[in-house]
Amino acid sequence: MTKQELDRKMLLLQQGDEQAFEDIYNDTRRGLFAFILSICRNYHTAEDMMQTAYIRLRTSIASYKAGGNAYAWLYTIAKNATLTEMKRSKRETPVDMEDPASQYGSYTMNEVGSPVTAAMNRALSENERQIVTLHIVSGFKHREIAEILQKPLGTVLWTYNNALAKLKRAIEKEREYED
């Protein structure tokens, strides 16, 4: 779905069209889940946050402005909800500083089947993971990513290239160990 098509769907949803919600959901769920997962790195947390994001989409659709970037709007909702939840759970759960999983959440994906994803989760920062996921998995252009994350385009480009170089080094290092 293009940005304009999604914008039209949002306006229909504003008028109460439930079919529009289904269309929006089907179009955005994969990219949105991947994005949330890149932030929290925990499958179950990402599932909860995805539900929260779509609920907030429904409860605050009246404030969506026509002609705006609907993807940026939705992804911002998801990002804010996820970060709030992560802060809340950090306050409530004691963190074991020696255990990285405790600090950053446990990623439950099958690492054998997804070595590059596993390397990404280990080697890249949260910011880098978000940008890489938005570009490669969600399919956004760098300009669109800059709008979603409220960062300068130059910063997004530099971070993306730097992140991939880091990922490449991390994968090569792991292969050396295996050999």
């Binding site: 504003q14 994969r30 995805m50 779509y54 609920i55 409860t59 997804s114 590059v116 991939l164 994968i171």
Partner: peptide
């Protein structure tokens, strides 16, 4: 790396939260 990462993520099982999200009131 980009191609492999994309295919790995596309193979992921995406949870379906449509039914539960739809229960939320629509603030139209």
């Amino acid at each position: 790396i980009e191609k492999i990462l994309k295919s790995e993520r596309e193979a992921e099982n995406i949870p379906d939260v449509y039914a539960s999200a739809k229960k939320a009131p629509l603030n139209k």
